[in-house]
Write a protein that binds this DNA or RNA. Structure first.
Length: 424
RNA sequence: GGAGGGAUGGCUGAGUGGUCGAAAGCACCGGUCUUGAAAACCGACGAGUCGAGAGGCUCCCAGGGUUCGAAUCCCUGUCCCUCCGCCA
């Protein structure tokens, strides 16, 4: 959520910044609503003030033994007026909340202009592309040997966009997750956290998936209310600090979690139907940081580097792109995507997305820290990034480490996790 | 599933219808003292919101209700704790 004060004071600037993200800020509607809110609020508070004052004097009259009947008669109309004003205020505030909750975060000044992913800016490339003296196979072909990667079985068990992995392939998948967790906890200073894979609506509202993107989620009816399968560990990790005031000494707070992620992929039917690039369920190692506001842009560079380090250690070629305004997510102020080279598709594909959400999520969550300089609680900045998507990393390993005979070599850093094996 | 007890400021914890946004202690901050520190003492000290300011309004788990007036009474829900049962 944006700072209502800032929006109120700078509506034109907000509209202008949001247009960079391809979002049209409803300026007229906002200003009309804001004006009405102010009127109704002032009227309501005046009535409340009067009620409080009179009730107090009734209390005093009663204490001193006076007859309070005439005083009671005076306030009889007040209650009704106050109730009407309160109801109107609630209505206006609901409308204002609904409006503000649907507005995306403002893009940082350094974010490139652009409508779509075609206008993202490549900031660096790492690693040499593999050269094969044979036709590169994709991960589906490589994985189907000995039915280690089985989409048919998953279709029977569940449906499309699920996968079954067996044997060494399942082990390699697990090895990747372990390797990522170990690297982030041991080399990058993250605290490993094990979190629920289902969350409530408040958590999703806090990180920004609700109310706007409900159709992307799997909802689980439970008693009187609903739970949701997490679309990313960003949700439970970031919400750990919801309604909290952290001490300055706890910052920066760096957390990492390995979880399954569940996405309905509502808007993407027909895309990436082959293979395990786009699944309803996939595993991800997620990095989250909570930092002082002035540190967040530097933290984004560091967090991105932490994710990149995994690709480097796995010796997978990749590039880092800075998303343009039009391609950025709802809550992000700035985003770097990591794209790994997939020989089977002959292109770079997203394997990580690292974002600085600034105070956008913190405001929704009321996640704060006590600033020693002011002594006051102030909003934190939150960041998150995949470090990395495990399934897609497995795909990248298969395709980049394939041999002429169809076998797949195991990256050196994973061999200790694979009982010393060098090939799958 | 059954029985009971809880939820109050950063933390602990008093408060059962009126002057309570809320005692006390701890923590934090400022000061005195000290070569420095500790201790002691003094002071300040919840959050949000509206307002130029004075000041107003809201918030004692959440949502309803009773009342002129609710932290306090009633209803519903959530979470936590204890005991019993069941269970991975």
């Amino acid at each position: 959520m944006l700072d209502p004060k800032f929006v109120r004071a700078n509506p034109e600037e907000v509209a202008q910044l949001l247009s960079k993200k391809g979002f049209e800020f409803p300026l007229q509607a906002f200003q009309a609503l804001e004006e009405r809110r102010r009127d109704v609020q002032i009227r309501t508070e005046n009535l409340q003030n009067e009620r409080n004052t009179r009730s107090k004097s009734i209390g005093q009259a009663k204490a001193s033994g006076q007859d309070i009947a005439p005083l009671l008669a005076e306030v009889s109309q007040l209650g009704e007026d106050l109730e009407a004003a309160k109801n109107e205020l609630l209505q206006v505030q609901d409308q204002m909340d609904a409006l503000l909750l649907g507005i995306p975060n403002l893009p940082d000044a350094s974010v490139p202009e652009g409508q779509s992913e075609d206008e993202n800016i490549e900031v660096r490339r790492w690693g040499a592309l593999p050269e094969f003296d044979f036709e590169a196979r994709d991960h589906v072909a490589l994985g189907e040997q000995a039915t280690q990667l089985d989409f048919e079985a998953a279709g029977k068990l569940t449906g499309s966009r699920f996968a079954v992995m067996r044997g060494n392939l399942a082990r390699l998948h697990r090895a990747l997750a372990q390797f990522m967790l170990d690297t982030h906890t041991q080399s990058h200073g993250y605290l490993e956290v094990n979190v629920p894979f289902m969350v409530n609506a408040d958590s999703l509202k806090g990180t920004g998936q609700l109310p706007k993107f409900e159709e992307d989620l799997f909802r689980v009816p439970f008693g009187e209310r609903d739970y949701y399968l997490i679309p990313t560990a960003e949700v439970p990790l970031t919400n750990l600090v919801r309604d909290q005031i952290l001490d300055a000494s706890e910052l920066p707070l760096r957390m990492v979690a390995h979880t399954p992620c569940f996405r309905s992929e509502a808007g993407s039917s027909g895309r990436d139907t082959r293979g395990m690039i786009r699944q309803h369920q996939f595993e991800k190692v997620e990095l989250v940081q909570l930092v002082r506001p002035e540190d967040s842009m530097q933290a984004l560079e560091e967090l991105t580097a932490h994710a990149e380090r995994i690709l480097q250690l796995l010796e997978l070629p990749y590039r880092t792109v800075c998303l343009c305004g039009g391609d950025m997510g709802f809550g992000a102020a700035k985003t770097y995507d990591l794209e790994v080279w997939l020989p089977g598709q002959n292109k770079y594909r997203e394997i990580s997305s690292c974002s600085n959400m600034t105070d956008f999520q913190a405001r929704r969550m009321l996640a704060r820290w006590r600033n020693p300089e002011t002594g006051k609680p102030e909003l934190l900045h939150s960041l998150n990034g995949s470090g990395l998507a495990v399934g897609r990393t497995l795909v990248a390993v298969l395709e980049n480490y394939q041999q002429a005979d169809g076998r797949v070599a195991i990256p050196q850093v994973l061999q200790p996790y694979m009982g010393g094996q060098t090939f799958l």
